[in-house]
């Protein structure tokens, strides 16, 4: 893998290695992260269909809640956070 295509993203504030061309979901699974979201009852959820139709993989990506991690390509410096359905906050620019 050429060096310039490897970079880091922030997951819940901690840097994790990422690679160009991968989705957020792929990157997290590769780094051993399985819980992407907590439901309103606090249950853990991870990605499911991996093709954009089930919406189970929703996360807060660069401040945007409800982003589908399986459909979002990683970018250098991207901020990804576990989504807590009981407490979803407005996108940064709208706070």
């Amino acid at each position: 893998m050429p060096a310039e295509s490897a970079f880091t993203i922030l997951f819940d504030g901690r840097p994790i290695p990422a690679e160009d061309g991968r989705s957020v979901a792929e990157t997290l699974l590769e780094n051993g992260v399985h819980t992407f979201r907590r439901t309103r009852n606090g249950e853990p959820r991870g990605p499911f269909c991996n093709m954009g139709i089930c919406f189970e993989c929703r996360m807060v990506i660069d401040g945007h809640p409800n982003s589908r991690s399986c459909m979002t390509p990683v970018r250098p410096g991207m901020r990804v956070e576990t989504q807590h359905d009981s407490n979803i906050e407005a996108p940064d620019e709208d706070r």
Partner: peptide, 8 residues
């Protein structure tokens, strides 16, 4: 109808 989302 929007999805369940942030508290606007």
């Amino acid at each position: 109808v929007t999805e369940r989302t942030f508290g606007l």
